[in-house]
Every structure is written in C-alpha cells, then in structure tokens.
Design a binder for these strands. Structure first.
Lengths: 258, 258
DNA sequence: CCAAAAGTGTTATGTCTACACCCATGA
DNA sequence: TCATGGGTGTAGACATAACACTTTTGG
C-alpha cells in the first residue's frame, strides 16, 4: 500500500533506484494573478509579505489548497478572502509551478490562476492599505518591482495568457464594468496588446447586430474638455464564445530575399 | 514554522477556523496525453493498469514528481520511461487536476502534459504489448473506452488544447515525420479540427517562400492505385511562431432575424 | 491510355485598413 | 462657435474560397 513519507526522506536525490511505492509529500497552493485596467494601463494586484521567507517583498496573493475542495474552489475562496470579490467563472487556471527550491521552506507546487477584475481599487482600500497595491504590470515585468518566489515568472505567463485569451475568449468584457463605452473597450485591447487600433474600425467590429454589445440608451459623461458623450453599452451573449477583434499578427511574412 | 501534517489530520472538513500554519500533504503526479496520427485519425496512447485502484482499466501514463526535479523534467522523465522517446520541447503543460477523491487512496494533484508524437506504434510494440495501446480519441471521449480516475476529462481537455494550438503554434509538424507530403500535413488539420480543407488552397498557404516548408527534392511513393508521387518537404523555421492555417470559424455571425 | 492524386490558374467574394469627413455636445 | 472626441462613408489592399483545369505517375 502507498504511504505518505516526510519530505526529508526523499530529500537526498534518488537517481536510479527510485521506489514508486513511496512518494514525497508536497504542499499545494493556489496563486492568483489579479489584473485590472486603470488609467488605460494594465495593473496587477500585489501584497506585501509579512512573514519570512521574502518578508517585506511584494508577491501575488495565494494560499494553501485544502483536501476537501477542488483547485477552482480553492482559488475562488482565496480570491474572496483576499479581495472580497465573489464573482464566479472569471478565474482561469493557466499553469502549475513546481521547481525544486522555489519555496525555500519545503516542496511546494502551486497552481496559478488568472483573475480579471474591474475596480479593484475599492477592494485594495478595504484591505490593509499598506499591505496591498495595484502596480502597472510593466513594473512587475521589467524588474522595477522585485517579486517573491517565482512570482515574476508567473505574472509574465499570466500576461501572455491574457494576450491570447483576448483574441480567443470574451475576457475583454471582464476588464470593463457592466456598462461601458466603445472607447473603454478599445482601451483594453490597446493596453493588453500594446497596439493602436483605429477607433472607427474597432467600432464597426463591435457594434453589430450579432449581439456583441447592446446599447442601453444612456450616455457617459464626457471628460473635462467636453466632446460628444459616448453611448453606454452592455456586453451581449457573443462574448461567451470568442472575441470580435483579432490581433493582426506583425507581418513576419512577405520578407523574401531582396 | 510551517510543518507537514499527515493527510488524516485535515481530513474532517475544516470550514471556518482553518489554520494556515499547518497544511495538508499531497502527492503530486504528472500525467501525459500522448497523441499521434494513424490512419488519418487522432489517437491517444493508453496503458492498462496493473494495480488497484481501477485495476484492469485503461488510463493515460504518468507518475510521481520527485522533489529534486521540475514538473517539466518529471514529465520528460516519465515520457522516456513509458515510451522510450527522448524528444525535448514537445511536451506542453496544459492543466492541473486536484478534485477531492479523484484518487481514492489519497490526496493527489496531477499536472497534465500533452505530447504529440509520430510513430508511437513501434514504441507500443516495445513495451509490454498487452499493457499499452493506441486508440482513436473518439472512443476515449464518447465513453466507448472507460478511463480510470478523471482521465477522460484530461484527454478531453488535451484535445481541446490541441485544436487551439494547431492554429497558434507549429504543433502540426509534430504529428508528421521529418519529411512529409503536403497531403499528410493537411490530414493533420482535417483530423484534429474535423473539417475538410481544399487541397489546392491548403497547398498555397503552406508552400510559400516564407519558410513554412522546404522541398527536399525527393518524392513519396504513391498508394496502391497509382497517382502522381507527392513531393517530400521538411518543416521550415516559420513553425516556431505560428501556423500558416487558421481555423475558419463556423459563421455564427450574419444571422439576423428573418 | 486510364484512373488517381498532385499541383496550377482564375475569379468572385469577403474582410481589413487607412483616412477623410460629419455629428453632437459642453464650455 | 469652437474644440473635442464620438460616429459614418468609402475606396483600395489584401485574404479567402470555390472549382475548373493541367500534370504526372503506376498499372
């Protein structure tokens, strides 16, 4: 019969004669990359660690999985605990990380989740203000802000995933509120992909009769210098399946000899 | 300090007063969905379990992760052990599964990998013939062949992943050999997506000057009833980044009232 | 020379992009 | 009435799909 053995038993590398009837014990955690749009930029929610290891460093929120819950449930529970948000089905699992030594204390395998939220700002204020912050992903990726564990890699992978999902799923609508303007939605694509999109063409792709966006009749207040108030829309059913916008791949093609 | 505790300690559900300073121990495994083309169909490699639980049932190959190796290394090692194949970088992690009770013996979280191989047939013959088999994925998915654990779901997710990757990566070339005909390559897309592709248009998309395929000068032997021998190509560098073929989405659009 | 499958040409249709232009509104 | 951004029209470039047609081989 298979039996749990303490980590130390398997600690000294076991190259050839590995006995599969005994296996090492791991801790399993879920970590969440919580992304949000703010000021037309992509931001990630970070918490400051209060305990060793990496005490005082920034990290993404997470916690231990319990044996009585699924991985998705663990992520949902942790998200609620850390941010107070109880939104179903905007959590996407995107990777597992188990490099030896990634946690100096013990063997930890973490399953990483991606959550796209709007208005985390209020949530951050609710938690211990000094312990949580929204920072631009650019700062977390270029090393300006150093992250604990292998969280920099996890954030990098999450952003890469979002870039794909933006084209393949309706994740874009998770960045905006229940009602939004076309420009707001366009800002999401522009920020995540780092491109400029023609406003006219973007509009035509999105406001069709297919059910991408549905006009509410209400209008948004224009900014300080005036301007025409934009129509407010809500997301239609089409977002369940895909996205109306495709990323125009940078023309790698058409580069013959010359 | 954090301490490992045996599984049973946390077994009786701990709803509210959960103590994060103690955490449950898990076993961590890697499972592999090994896909291959055979007879113009998509097949998956299954092994017959020799021990309880699910003794005698079909399952996908896998094994325990060791603390001294990364998840990727564990998958690579298991792949080599099970099939004798030592190909780097065709293993893709695509999901983690940790539902309570998925393994009746203990708490197990498994990290699932996808491997696309050509010519597993010889490998299968090498292993204990009665213990391994290639079966069409359709049979594994529609329940014709019942799989152990939650492996049916894992295979389902793997196939779904391949369908996406076929459009986004160069995974198609992993299904064919070092040299291949255009028709062979087209069969991959047709089998995985379950569509018919115009041979003429497919050819035009693939045999360009961009470096998708490179002619070898040699030709394949035609089938029994004769026919023009097809040119043999090898994969070019373009496959590193993407695929020359995009899946034409079934026109969900353009369905007004009427 | 006939069947079969590879490979080419051609054209209609649809989609994307750039950019000129009009519109509605708050100050 | 002016500045500002929302919103519309349109023509060219480009990509796709359909299918008729030619070529090359083994029997």
């Amino acid at each position: 019969m298979v039996r749990v053995v303490p980590t130390k038993t398997a600690d000294p590398g076991v190259p050839a004669g590995y006995d599969p009837s005994r296996f090492p014990a791991f801790a399993v955690t879920v970590d969440m990359v919580i992304l949000t749009m703010s000021d037309s930029r992509l931001n990630v929610l970070l918490v400051r660690r209060g305990v060793a290891p990496f005490k005082g460093m920034w990290a993404i929120p997470g916690g231990f999985k319990r044996p009585t819950e699924t991985l998705d449930e663990a992520a949902k529970r942790e998200l609620a605990q850390e941010t107070g948000v109880d939104s179903t089905s905007l959590l996407t699992q995107f990777g597992a990380y188990g490099d030896p030594g990634r946690d100096p204390r013990m063997n930890v395998v973490t399953v990483a989740y991606l959550a796209v939220l709007r208005d985390v700002g209020a949530v951050v204020a609710g938690t211990d203000a000094a312990a949580a912050a929204l920072v631009p992903v650019s700062q977390a990726l270029n090393g300006k802000i150093e992250l604990a564990f292998d969280h920099a890699q996890i954030v990098r992978d999450a952003v890469e995933r979002v870039r794909y999902d933006l084209e393949l799923t309706g994740i874009a609508t998770a960045f905006v509120g229940p009602t939004f303007t076309i420009a707001e939605l366009r800002a999401v694509y522009e920020a995540v992909w780092g491109v400029h999109l023609d406003g006219a063409n973007f509009r035509r792709s999105v406001v069709t009769e297919d059910g991408w966006v549905i006009p509410t009749g209400r209008r948004a207040r224009p900014g300080a210098p005036g301007g025409k108030p934009a129509e407010l829309y809500r997301a239609g059913r089409m977002w369940k399946y895909s996205s109306p916008i495709r990323r125009s791949q940078p023309n790698e093609r058409g580069k013959g000899g010359s």
